[in-house]
Design a protein around this nucleic acid. Structure first.
Lengths: 232, 232
DNA sequence: AGAGCCATGTGACGCTTGTCACATCGAATC
DNA sequence: GATTCGATGTGACAAGCGTCACATGGCTCT
């Protein structure tokens, strides 16, 4: 278990801060441990600060009137959640919930803005973080708009594999603790379609094995190439 | 025709600059007038600066392998195009092209970063601009993922109407110089589907008239409510 | 007026996908 | 081992939508 300061130093857009500034932040922010399924906020709520994931995972998603959900992103340790509304003063654009028991730090808006305005490196890093998010969303839009379910799944698996997978011979082995139901909300489809897409990818040899949460995949480049090449 | 400095002052994230700083920027940036259909850059190109729309309109879009296009946003006067890649150093995530003859200013990356790092107000405004874009994309993702074509069109028309429409009795009148083909790429569908969606909205009384580029719509709230209420 | 062109309307068809229904499977519990 | 429950596989079906084909309509140019 790391200290709060050590955890904050791991946050990309705070890493440039001096020790004193970090201590100031650490003193002002509220750490809390929560279980799985804890709702941090819902779309439309006013925003008074930013959450930082210290341990665990937080899913950010939109809910439709009929209950269907579209996952926008899943954030892990060291990543901020919903830093966006801090700046335009608007409400949260999406909802957020922990998927596993997690430790979070809540940083009040005023503290965050102070750091942002007094340290150009923090400002740069914040913009970079927003940029990454934007890039990711552009990707998501394109994926949902253009590709069929199997290609979306392949692309999605490739994303996870390139981050968390490990090489094992010619294959990539990935431990992905997700139900098909969860995967479905992440790529904007139904659970049954995910099941069928997996079957399709297995037949193509892109998914070489799957037992429990452990996937054996073909190399990431191959997954991406196939997904890109598939006509809508 | 405004001067370059006056035009730059209209740009949201530069409006806080001193006259001297603005003059410096104006001296360094490259204005150019281009016709319709001029390609500013394509997805994947490296990014050396930011474009600012002085007059006209620029469409930002992604192209699929098979030629289909998804419009991400259409930017008008005073708005920056693709300020995102300046900060993470990545390539442009999308392509951009003028839709009408336009005047643009090209601001080299170094100048932009100088202003960003030396003026916290500029930094704030840049983040706000990114935030707006992010919010818009979140909306777009949800729209594409959840709603049918007619609802997407209604939502889209409501967006335009709330910005450019004018009240006329109980109706909103909107001049929207777009072909159905263009509308189709903006809401991620085919031209024929737009035609049918318009018919549907007319039957519902949400679109009360359409001649040339001039639309007569029911109030924006009504459009949005209907679009939200429509099941998937 | 006629020709050509582009935008639009519309019918037909098939594919993808969401939905419903139900079978199977596996792990946890008793 | 039997039960239970959640996760997963799969068949059938219908709805939505993309695509193709072609008609219509309005505009400009000559």
């Amino acid at each position: 278990m790391t200290t709060l300061i050590e955890a904050l130093r791991e946050v990309p857009f705070l890493s440039g801060l001096s020790d004193a500034a970090l201590e100031r932040l650490a003193a002002r922010c509220v750490p809390r441990a929560v279980g799985a399924g804890f709702a941090l906020f819902r779309a439309g709520d006013p925003c008074g600060g930013v959450y930082i994931v210290l341990a665990g995972q937080v899913r950010v998603y939109r809910t439709a009137h009929d209950g269907r959900e579209q996952t926008l992103t899943v954030e892990g340790p060291g990543r901020p959640v919903a830093e966006l509304p801090l700046f335009d003063g608007g409400p949260y654009p999406a909802s957020a919930m922990t998927v596993v028991p997690s430790r979070l730090a809540y940083l009040p808006r005023a503290e965050f803005e102070y750091a942002f305005r007094h340290d150009p490196d923090v400002a740069s890093a914040v913009v970079a973080a927003l940029g990454r998010r934007l890039r990711h969303l552009v990707q998501l839009v394109e994926t949902i708009a253009f590709r069929d379910v199997a290609a979306r799944l392949a692309m999605h698996l490739a994303d996870y594999a390139s981050r968390d997978g490990r090489l094992e011979g010619a294959d990539v082995v990935l431990d992905l603790p997700r139900t098909q139901e969860e995967l479905a909300t992440e790529i904007g489809t139904a659970r049954e379609s995910v099941s069928r897409a997996i079957k399709q990818l297995k037949k193509l040899g892109l998914v070489r094995g799957l037992s429990g949460t452990v996937w054996r995949l073909s190399p990431v480049g191959q997954l991406r190439d196939w997904a890109r090449g598939e006509a809508s």
